[in-house]
Amino acid sequence: MEKTADILCIGAVLWDIIGRSASHMRLGADVPGRITRLPGGVAMNIAMTLARFGLNPAVLCATGRDPEGDSLLAEAAAFGIITRYAYRSDDLPTDRYMAIEGANGLIAAVADAHSLEAAGAKILRPLEDGRLGRDTAPWTGPVALDGNLTVDLLHTIAHSPLFRNADLRVAPASPGKAERLLALIGHPRVTLYVNLEEAGLLCQCEFSDSSSAALGLMQRGVRHVLVTDGGRAAADGFDGDVITHCPPSVLVTRVTGAGDTFMAAHIVSERAGMDRASALARASKAAATYVSGDTPL
């Protein structure tokens, strides 16, 4: 029997190629380490965490009809993710992300999400053809949106009747793509998840801490925002009120996917009926556990 989706993850589902070293790295460094290939992308990372917490996430994404796409969706299904709504392209390759991480954090990364961008609104077809909804009966559940989507598509989502009843949870794919989310600022059903740098880019200023960043974004029209700041206190801003929580101190062994884990854990916590402080604390702990190398459960 096919599972019914209880949350949609819309955006990048791709292969993460990560080079990690225990050494402190600088520009031009050549050090020993490990190179791994894992399922990744913002939508995939969120979906994997949601599945670990017992939800039934479905991904709306773009992959090629190539061996990389076949194996990627097979791995996603093995995690418990619903993949039958994925858009499969005959002429676009499966996307990839490559990053280098050292003892001093993320050194550099390149995201090749060109196939997702080229597919555009085709990935939303299940929301309009009756499989997940239509204009007259739109999707009413939570949606995790990925900043890898184009500005045009994010603008379409912000004004589409297909999303008028959805609980939109939005995260940038990276600081370099944060400004794409300006299309969604002011939307009454959006919760925004950003780090301190991304908050500054959206507000075109620098913030000293997550609390001031949350206040700045609410002044720009965001009703609900979560701001993380690495190992420093994270903030939850809602209707002008800000609360903070400092994550536990851990030894950092990985970086890529930490923000996505925080977002997924926060979504699950709110769905479970936790209050703001408890949901923020649980999300912070899940992200800290993730970067320490353990499973965030």
Rank of each mutant, 00 (worst) to 15 (best):
R164D: 04
Q204R: 15
H187I: 03
G147I: 00
A166N: 10
L149R: 13
H187A: 09
E197A: 04
G240W: 04
R189A: 06
V227Q: 07
D209Y: 02
E206V: 14
A183R: 15
P247F: 09
L162K: 14
S211Q: 13
H224R: 14
F238R: 14
D209A: 11
T156D: 15
E179C: 05
A199T: 12
S211M: 01
R220D: 12
S160E: 11
V190K: 02
D239V: 03
V143H: 07
A214I: 04
R223E: 02
D236F: 03
A166G: 14
A213I: 08
H155N: 13
P172M: 12
T244V: 13
L182N: 08
L202E: 12
G186N: 08
N148C: 02
D236M: 00
D236W: 09
L217S: 08
V170Y: 09
V151D: 08
H159V: 15
R223D: 01
L192D: 07
V170H: 11
V222N: 03
L226V: 13
R189F: 00
D146W: 07
I157C: 09
M218W: 06
G240N: 05
E198V: 11
S174Y: 04
R223I: 05
L202M: 10
A144Q: 01
S210M: 06
L182M: 12
C205A: 10
L201G: 00
E198W: 06
V143R: 08
S160N: 12
H159Q: 15
N165I: 03
T244C: 07
V143N: 06
L215I: 01
R232F: 00
L226D: 00
T244Q: 07
V225M: 09
I243P: 02
N195C: 12
F163W: 10
S212F: 01
G216D: 00
T150V: 01
L181I: 11
G147P: 09
D152P: 06
V170G: 08
L162S: 14
A144Y: 02
L154D: 08
R189N: 11
L162E: 15
A213H: 04
D167V: 12
T228P: 03
L145A: 05
P161A: 06
L192R: 08
V222P: 04
A166M: 12
T244H: 00
L145H: 04
I243M: 05
G240Y: 00
L192E: 06
L192M: 14
E206P: 02
Q204N: 14
T228Q: 03
P172I: 10
G216W: 01
T244M: 05
H245F: 13
T244F: 00
E197R: 07
S211I: 02
I157R: 14
A178Y: 06
T150C: 05
I185T: 09
H224F: 00
G200W: 03
A166H: 15
S211W: 01
C205G: 01
S210V: 06
E179F: 02
L202K: 09
G230F: 07
P172L: 11
D167Y: 05
S160I: 14
L202S: 04
Q219F: 02
N165S: 15
F238W: 02
S212G: 03
S160G: 14
R220T: 15
G237M: 08
A234N: 01
G200I: 12
K177W: 08
D241T: 04
P161T: 12
A158F: 13
L192S: 11
